[in-house]
Design a protein around this nucleic acid. Structure first.
Lengths: 345, 345
DNA sequence: CTGAAAGCGCTTACAG
DNA sequence: CTGAAAGCGCTTACAG
């Protein structure tokens, strides 16, 4: 008869089963589960081996009730880009695998007047252990204030440091944009246009500033007349690029602050009979799957979204709680050069 | 002094607070929460109004512990296509909003030898209320058997009925594929090629069969020599299309069983100097965002993934539990005609 | 280092 | 129609 057979036949063993089998109180088993230091070595080992044999795993619901917090981590997102969310999610799940924590997802509308109270209800009701805020939700200070008020752990993912280092995953989008500037300047471009994201979006201002700084290193400046505001959507990219390509003289390159808008710029170029990668150079940002599927393939700044999610997950995970003070988790996006850019003719 | 002020200052009201304020036992409050019929109308109303005033919401963790199941619904997915997962997720979240249930996501590897035991641990440990299985995980009978053994509610999303109607969301991919056949036949195509998904994938065989049936209505048959096996990936589409376009005589149309492979076919066509939508017609399946962003825009069979997710969520939701016997939840995908298809010249 | 008691916030039997 | 007791599977004080 194995240990497993000795527990109630209609379910998994509980802390009481383990205690009985080990001949100790449930409290001592609890101490072992929670890695208390005040357990005699022999006792601990005996209990651990029984736990192993029986396959006992403490009930997260019961633990949560007693602990007054659950073992759920919330991913609160508001980004229409499927790839962004799925990649972050994937990285988070990788980091959380085997930790006993689970990922609860929640899509929100940042502009909703009830955002904060909805999130308050969600976080309190589920007694979330922690929360991950990807961009652009990470820019909502109202949410961060709420998290502080409720004393919840959180990690913000953003293109610029918005918070103390142990609460941030930073992708230095500015440095990625600067690489795009070096690339275009190196190809001899001087009439360079830019299509931005919405006003107020941190990623947009950070990328634009980084691009300008990159250009400055080559003695170039961004001509305000060649800057159009987009909205990170395909349609806005089409529209902005149409305007830019109608100008005289025409810009020879366009840096689009995300791939969706860059894809829109491809269409605008085609409408005018311009060959992308010859008559006009286009650079995107994200390196989403579409970048490699368009023709010609698109030069783009790669954002390692999955890796960023993984880091966020590790930062929220309990093992990380015990580690040395968190070092800044920072990432520098890398320019992927493909065929949408070429030397000025 | 409002009702809200009367509860413990350091947190949300509990069932005990409500009971005290209503002058009844907690059991009676519990009956109201769970919509028992055995509560006097007056009592019920009094309690309900106090619940409303205080903003009381029962603790899902405590309820779960007593009920022996949580209020978590699991989304178990294994589809590299981000859009598929995010759309299903979005629909599920819409359906679950306000129900008190939360969505826990879990990415699995269908080919993992530990798949079933991993899922058993997940489902048992979290005491999931229900599970959603999107394609192709929905085709894993081992998982379905496990769900039955554990007596868990579940909904399978698939392109063909695999289970009883109240456990299925069916998209009749065959009928969508037939529309593609009618479209191409109507344009005069007769040398029509097809790139399939992996062997064993239900969606692939269903779409292929539907396509053949559609062709048959026009007196056409699919030439086995013009059928290539792909793997639902961009690269496999490129490869298969290269082979097909090298044939003499060349097919005049290619039906790709998903958009990713169709995007690959675009590249293969370009490599040969063929103009998509003129020299060669290409039809995809999914109508993913990329279909409208490629040039020329792609004709594709639209799969309403979000709607399918919403239906699945409604089927798992408790309100649905009380409704009349579930009618089959079935969907017919719709062909979206764009510019990648044209009459044979 | 270890345990008996009480409690986390609910529900299930069982009475009445 | 309503309630007092016991219990879901854990942990937090509090003792020893």
């Amino acid at each position: 008869m194995t240990a497993r057979d000795r527990v109630a036949k209609d379910g998994r063993p509980t802390i009481n089963d383990i205690a009985r089998m080990a001949g100790v109180s449930k409290k001592t088993v609890s101490r072992v589960i929670n890695e208390s230091l005040f357990v005699k070595e022999d006792t601990r080992e005996a209990i651990q081996s029984i736990i192993r044999e029986t396959g006992y795993v403490p009930d997260p619901q019961a633990r949560g009730l007693a602990f007054r917090h659950s073992f759920l981590v919330g991913l609160i997102y508001d980004n229409p880009n499927a790839q962004h969310t799925i990649d972050h999610q994937q990285g988070l799940l990788e980091a959380m695998a085997g930790t006993g924590f689970e990922l609860v997802v929640r899509r929100v509308d940042r502009t909703s007047p009830t955002l904060v109270e909805d999130m308050r209800a969600f976080i309190e009701r589920q007694k979330l252990f922690g929360v991950v805020l990807p961009s652009p939700v990470s820019e909502e200070e109202r949410l961060v204030d709420l998290l502080k008020e409720l004393d919840r752990r959180y990690v913000r993912i953003s293109s610029t440091p918005l918070d103390q280092a142990d609460r941030m995953v930073v992708s230095h989008d500015g440095q990625g944009a600067a690489q795009a500037a070096h690339h275009l300047a190196g190809l001899g471009h001087t009439r360079i246009a830019l299509i931005s994201g919405q006003q107020g979006r941190r990623s947009s201002s950070v990328r634009m500033q980084g691009f300008e700084e990159g250009l400055a290193e080559h003695g170039l400046a961004l001509d305000p007349a060649l800057v159009r505001r987009g909205a990170y959507t395909y349609e806005s990219g089409v529209q902005a690029a149409r305007e830019l390509l109608a100008m005289e003289p025409r810009p020879t390159a366009i840096f689009c602050l995300n791939d969706e808008m860059a894809a829109g710029a491809y269409l605008a170029a085609r409408e005018r009979g311009l060959v992308v990668g010859a008559d006009i150079s286009i650079v995107g940002f994200d390196d989403a799957p579409i970048a490699a599927r368009l023709w010609p393939t698109m030069t783009s700044v790669r954002l390692p979204l999955r890796q960023m999610g993984r880091i966020a997950g590790e930062m929220l995970t309990p093992s990380a709680l015990r580690e040395a003070p968190a070092t800044p988790r920072e990432i520098v996006p890398e320019l992927i050069v493909r065929n949408s850019t070429a030397a000025v003719s």
